[in-house]
Design a protein around this nucleic acid. Structure first.
Lengths: 340, 340
DNA sequence: CAACATATGGCAATCGGTTGTCATTGCCAT
DNA sequence: ATGGCAATGACAACCGATTGCCATATGTTG
């Protein structure tokens, strides 16, 4: 029985298999990666031996020689933002299904961290997915030239992107508010470097002109619940009756602050959030918000990236994918207060 | 000026630096990793060249030759569970600070996925952090023998662990409920394979005996808000006046369901959650829950793992770290209903 | 100044694979 | 019987770093 020396604890390599089968290591490599290059009989022997030895390829070595790492970097500005949970899950599932590993990095809302991470990932990942980038267009474009990249919620000419169409939902939200009798509305802006925030403001102010209502912009505010207090105070002070917030975190923070100050939602003020994150349905009152298929956006981003990585496989090589969005009406919006 | 051929786009290697400085590649390697092995003057030349060429070591190659990958796997059962956000952020920050990369994997509450991931990570990571493992003690112990490992919320003899002391908080919660006049309490159990859930139940039932109150166990329920409906119905049907839920997700789900059914919280029933996740403070009513320093738990886990990886560096090599927990009282608990 | 210790840097093997190139083999058609 | 082609598998270079060992340069001591 003991034809081989006591099995070493160290994981098996192709050399072990080669020795066991009496072939060269390169043959083993080919049998496993290019099965057609090898006689079916030797291949079967090799496969059997591989199975017996519990062989699993060393991904480092593979990466070194083939140049492909089998990993994809996913950059998000803030891991603890619930918006990214679903996104991350979407990318994770799709990547795993395709045999890739996800390298998740929290860039802490910092463009520097984002840039340096990209540089580092350039060697340790085959491509990257960048959500809500804080970088400028040209930096992003330059980075995309160096490695396959897909952005999420960031539209730069020449860089494949998944766009969640919140601007059009924003107009929808405005219509909703107008139909409830609101005439003075505020947009609670997100970070200045957020393209989403800019685009929404543009869409919103245009829609406002068309509809003849007043919409003012407040902020910028950090996309966190803590910023909601400042946003709420600003909103109250500006004398508007409804606001559309950059995202649900801010909106929820506003809800809390308004409650503290004794201002009723939606009786005294209506609030619309964005993203329909975890929590938007059970806060008090439940938040009217612009919902989008976030997990799906993550999946689509991965598909687009993989299409770049393996151009052979068919599939229209789309460079831009827009995810539909819709308004979900809950309890935080209501008729405008009677007297101003 | 142009002493060198047009800079290639490909990232610089130690050979590029070696050529530029007129030394051997090995010298460059030494200058960068073992500075004392190299003359200070050559070292400075090399460092200058490295900086100029924007050199960054190729982690794959480094891993292959040194055996260390510079990566740490972090396994969580469900990425979308807010509980893990903070944990992940804690590990991420601490790992990054120590120069490690985090490989985040969602094991989808599956022991098989968990086991196979571990096997795969064995070659691509230096160690792993396993949160709320669904594996049995012996499997876990065997895995820990093969690679450095730290568990979170899973106490197995011989495996370093970070334990969030929810059991003692559970007794605290019970006392809180008793002081409010509750005498019939239910424990809404989590997954059967969750050790945390078992330990809490044990602590709770012992405390109940001591205090002479009735505590019954309901479940198991999946740790998701959707399970809250079933849990709420079971709680109502069992005739208790207060319950302690396995975690905040279930508790929040119960809140929603009870509201639908017209059962008032806390007037008709009190609810205590666990973890103090994102959302626990703004749900309706705000949730009384057992809070714990989750992000810190992640950091501690990383520290413990790193201590295993670099035994040289001082620092007591603790094998078990208990994180304190406390009860945060909010609006979901109140006096027991007068009549039963 | 001889003798020896030490500092310094180069060579080459190695990690575990991949892949280009080439030699061998067998089979076919001519 | 022979030339030609395809299939097959071995050899060896290579990916980018690390590291043991050795040769040389330098410095110290008696």
């Amino acid at each position: 029985m003991a034809t081989q020396p006591a099995a070493v604890d160290r994981p098996a390599t192709i050399h072990d298999i080669a020795a066991k089968c009496g072939v060269a290591a390169s043959t083993v490599s080919r049998a496993l990666s290019t099965p057609d290059r090898v006689n079916i009989r030797t291949r079967q022997r090799i496969e059997a031996a591989a199975a017996e030895l519990h062989y699993t390829p060393n991904s480092q070595a593979k990466a070194l020689s083939s140049g492909r790492t089998g990993a994809v970097g996913v950059l998000v500005p803030d891991i603890t933002n619930p918006f990214y949970f679903d996104l991350i899950r979407g990318t994770q599932l799709q990547l795993k299904a395709a045999g890739y590993t996800q390298l998740l990095v929290d860039t802490e809302e910092s463009d520097e961290v984002e840039a340096s991470t990209m540089e580092q990932l350039r060697k340790s990942a085959d491509g990257i997915i960048v959500a809500a980038s804080r970088l400028t267009d040209d930096v992003l474009l330059a980075a995309a030239a160096k490695m396959p990249m897909v952005t999420i919620n960031r539209d730069v000419e020449g860089v494949p992107a998944v766009i969640i169409d919140t601007p059009s939902a924003t107009s929808q939200a405005l219509d909703h508010l107008i139909s409830l009798g609101h005439a003075r509305v505020a947009y609670i802006a997100g970070p200045l470097t957020s393209q989403s925030s800019s685009l929404r403001w543009i869409a919103l102010s245009e829609a406002a002109v068309e509809r003849g209502v007043e919409v003012r912009r407040l902020g910028p505010f950090a996309p966190k619940t803590q910023s909601g207090a400042a946003a709420a105070d600003a909103a109250v002070h500006s004398g508007i009756t409804a606001c559309i917030a950059f995202n649900d975190l801010i909106a929820i923070g506003m809800l809390q602050r308004l409650r503290e100050r004794g201002i009723r939602v939606p009786e005294d003020m209506s609030i619309v959030g964005c993203d329909d994150i975890f929590g938007a349905d059970f806060c008090n009152p439940p938040l009217t918000t612009m919902a989008s298929p976030i997990e799906q956006a993550g999946r689509v981003a991965v598909s687009m990236l993989l299409a770049q990585l393996n151009p052979l496989a068919g599939g229209g090589n789309r460079s831009r994918s827009v995810m539909p969005t819709h308004l979900t009406v809950r309890g935080s919006t209501g008729p405008a207060p009677k007297v101003s």
